[in-house]
Design a protein around this nucleic acid. Structure first.
Length: 547
RNA sequence: GGCCCCAUCGUCUAGGCAGGUCUAGGACACCGGGUUUUCAACCCGGCAACAGGGGUUCGAAUCCCCUUGGGGCUACCA
């Protein structure tokens, strides 16, 4: 029996968990669970400049929402902690010392500017930049001296250059790099923190990680990391699996920039934009807004989201939390993410987490890039909306309503459950919400959709029909679905028209649009009083224009 | 520029590693029809692909090479 499988997801807390990160996390989780192994969450917060204080919690929330749990990591502990790299400084220091002592790493004193210059020069001259390893490594005393003089002191790993570096990748096969391709890289920054390439190797070793599953963008780091692993005397390196990149259906790599870019483009098409009001909504200054419009800067995500919501601009979902807000189910996300570059090979598509876990095989991960197809995602969501256990769906629905601060959030469980039941086939929780809002807002807050008014209310006979409906409704004592259905169908029959001719004007009168819950339920749930009042208000408002 | 990776319908892909059963299968999207109290959903039907060129072979989507195209990396970021 092979050793126990240990995988890890190692995000840097620089922002929300996005699609790419979630997929990486999921693949690692799936592989660990499939093998009855261990899944570790490790926070790679070694860049003091980029870390956001709230980001880690946000990533944790998103993972939990997806149903991805971890055996070791923040908030759950474990035998190999701490799991925040910023708290492991002493550990990294020890290993850096070791390499220094053994002559496998050396001090450098160049400033960032000097390095930039060298790099620029190198690019002009030939191809890639290679740091010139000194014939003799600086001594500790020299490093002290440099530090005292205010020079930055970094430590570089002397990458072995005597033979090609060969990486065996589970998804990509054997890849070899010629000597000289992988040059000496920094393992300890001048602020004393380790770099990613170093901390990651040390931690994977100490945490006994057996499989490193990550994005293709790390492929070029792998030979160096592997060499480091060997230099540190860590024994056989873990197995690597580099997944392809997920590209956006709007072209290019799926990137967080898509959201601000979409908003900016939308803003440009708006002629009478109240910049002051908009800036206020976003919690930014007018200058910041101007700068954003000019493409010079980008406000943070919450500001972007708030402004878009205010203007009714739909932004493409990128972060996991965006999908939550748009009414997608975690079941959908997990299923769809899993199929981004992997499939069970037997044609199954709609699968639950348990099925995914059972079927997942890292060796079946595809080499080519996959496109994030939002159409297919939507179709998947419809399917999961239908399949998910109704109680569970109710839980998801309530969480979603709270998240988007919907007026429906105040509704009781029975009502919400009923909405779920009667709106079977809905694409998302957001659709459910939209279709039902008219029940939970005041009559005067109803906004009439101009298209609906034109298409339905201003059609000949519509107002007369409404008047007739009102009459019969007023005469109906008990507002049961049965009574209402019988009455409305009877009316259609009397008038020799399809039910649509009756239902549509009524629907628009009640909710202002042509889209709502089924009409009998709509009327029943609204109640007699409200229904009559809304019909009256509609007749009063639109009656004159048609007759 | 250099290095590395990838290449089947519009999209996700099955098939490729063990060449023939592939006149290339499924799903999403799209188009047409049906159902219908709205939006959906649902049912039926249809369109649609092995990037190009060389090899190897009796035979290639499958193996090899080149071209083209796409992607990634090229930081004291991860």
């Amino acid at each position: 029996m092979a050793e126990k499988v240990v995988t890890r997801f190692a995000p840097s807390p620089t922002g929300y968990l996005h699609v790419g990160g979630a997929r990486t996390a999921l693949f690692n989780w799936l592989w660990a669970r499939h093998n009855g192994g261990t899944f570790i969450l490790r926070i790679e917060d070694t860049d003091q400049k980029r870390n956001t204080p709230t980001a880690m919690q946000q990533v944790i929330n998103d993972l939990r929402w997806l149903g991805i749990d971890w055996d070791e990591g923040p908030q759950v502990g474990g035998p190999n902690g701490p799991y925040l790299q910023s708290q492991r400084r002493d550990i990294y220091d020890r290993y850096v010392e070791r390499l220094l002592d053994e002559g496998k790493a050396y001090y450098c004193f160049e400033t960032t500017e000097e390095l930039d210059e060298l790099r620029q020069q190198a690019r002009q001259d030939s191809g890639g930049f290679a740091y010139q390893r000194p014939a003799e490594f600086p001594t500790r005393a020299q490093a002290e001296q440099a530090r005292a003089e205010g020079r930055p002191v970094t430590v570089r790993f002397a990458v072995p250059q005597d033979q090609p570096l060969v990486v065996r990748d589970i998804v990509r096969g054997v890849i070899s790099f010629q000597p000289g391709e992988i040059t000496d890289f920094i393992i300890q920054k001048s602020d004393g923190f380790p770099t990613y390439n170093f901390a990651c190797v040390v931690d994977d070793y100490l945490m006994r990680v057996t499989h490193v599953i990550r994005g293709q963008e790390h492929l070029m780091n792998t030979p160096g990391q592997q060499a480091l692993w060997t230099a540190l005397g860590f024994g056989p390196p873990p197995q690597y699996a580099h997944m392809s990149v997920t590209v956006s259906d709007s072209g290019g790599k799926l990137s967080k920039r898509e959201r601000p870019n979409t908003l900016r483009e939308a803003l440009k098409t708006m002629a009478d934009l109240d910049r002051e009001a908009l800036a206020k909504v976003g919690g930014i200054t007018v200058e910041q807004l101007e700068s954003f419009l000019a493409g010079e800067s980008t406000p943070d995500m919450p500001a972007i989201g708030a402004m878009a919501a205010h203007l009714g601009v739909h932004l493409p979902e990128i972060n996991i939390v965006d999908f939550f807000k748009s009414g997608y189910l975690p079941e959908t996300m997990v299923n769809f993410l899993a199929l981004l570059g992997w499939n069970p090979g037997d044609g199954r598509e709609i699968m639950q987490l348990e099925e995914l876990t059972a079927a997942f095989d890292i060796a079946r991960v595809s080499k080519s890039n996959s496109l994030f197809d939002r159409n297919k995602l939507a179709a998947f969501n419809t399917e999961h909306m239908r399949r998910v256990d109704k109680d569970r769906l109710l839980g998801h629905f309530k969480a979603h309503l709270r998240q988007v601060a919907s007026p429906l959030a105040a509704a009781d469980d029975a009502t919400l459950a009923r909405i779920i039941r009667i709106a079977e086939g809905a694409q998302s929780l957001e659709h459910l919400d939209r279709k039902s809002r008219f029940l939970f807002i005041d009559a005067d807050a109803i906004e009439f959709d101009p298209a609906a008014v034109k298409k339905v209310l201003q059609k000949p006979g519509a107002m007369e029909m409404l008047a007739l409906i009102r009459q019969r409704l007023a005469a109906t004592d008990e507002f049961t679905e049965q009574n209402l259905e019988g009455m409305l169908r009877g009316l259609a029959e009397d008038k020799q028209v399809g039910l649509g001719k009756v239902a549509q004007p009524l629907r628009v009168a009640l909710c202002g649009t042509t889209v709502s819950l089924p009409i009998f339920d709509s009327v029943q749930m609204l109640g007699k009083q409200n229904t009559l009042a809304r019909i009256d208000a509609t007749v009063e408002r639109f009656g004159e224009h048609t007759s």
